[in-house]
């Protein structure tokens, strides 16, 4: 009798988390990237004078560029690192693909949230930008971060055994994540400009639907990706 699926997925998450806690390379790399981008953005936008509505749209777009590219410097590593170091064979021999996907997604989602927790307040501070409804913004970040993390994890599994992994990841991630990122930018701008929760309606439903479809699709297809 096997233990339930969540505990198997959690073991995969713990494996990644312990490695990262002892090595800290991924976290350091993404936070360094985010900090560097943040400083560049702050200096370049400091002297731009815009009406409040336009400023919210610009900030929303720039914030998502910052979050997406910072996350992209770390998220694709989850499966690629396993293949490159030879540790994927032990995992493939013991764990089901779906448990591995969910475990690695959990790690990547936490990584995304850690980036957001550092980058978003700093971005707001440096841009002297106060979102009208921080809770709406948090909901948008959670829903979008879920989608970005899940799709990136799944694509990492696909490209991990291919040649030219990095370019392949970018080429496949862009069209797949665009339907998530565009509404995410829109919802972020609404959350920043309007204090009412209704401001992010119905975009949050689009984000939630994307997350649901991506999760179901990824879990159904993972078996074929994992077994090769």
């Amino acid at each position: 009798m096997k233990s339930p699926f969540p505990s198997r997925a959690f073991a995969v998450f713990l494996r990644d988390a312990r490695r990262e806690l002892r090595r800290r390379t991924t976290l350091a790399a993404v936070l360094f990237f985010a900090a560097a981008a943040l400083i560049l953005i702050s200096f370049s936008l400091a002297s731009v004078a815009l009406p409040a509505g336009d400023r919210a749209k610009l900030n929303a777009g720039v914030l998502w560029i910052l979050l997406f590219f910072s996350a992209s410097s770390g998220l694709p590593r989850s499966f690629v690192r396993e293949e490159e170091s030879g540790t994927a064979l032990a995992l493939r021999k013991t764990a089901a693909g779906e448990a591995v996907l969910v475990g690695k997604f959990l790690f990547n989602f936490l990584l995304f949230l850690a980036i957001a927790a550092v980058a978003v307040p700093l971005f707001c501070l440096l841009q002297s930008w106060t979102p009208a409804n921080p809770w709406s913004l948090a909901i948008v970040l959670l829903l979008s971060g879920f989608g970005v993390s899940f799709v990136s994890t799944f694509l990492s599994a696909i490209v991990s055994r291919a040649g030219q992994k990095d370019i392949l990841f970018v080429l496949t991630a862009l069209p797949l994540l665009m339907p998530l990122l565009l509404p995410a930018v829109e919802a972020t701008a609404h959350a920043a400009a309007d204090p009412a929760f209704a401001a992010i309606d119905p975009v949050w439903k689009v984000l939630l639907s994307y997350d649901g479809l991506a999760t179901v699709g990824g879990l159904v297809l993972m078996r074929f990706v994992w077994e090769g």
Partner: peptide, 14 residues
């Protein structure tokens, strides 16, 4: 020991 323990848990047979 950590490697083997986590792999056995990931296999569903801790």
């Amino acid at each position: 020991a950590e490697n083997l323990s986590l792999l056995s848990r990931a296999a569903g047979r801790p």
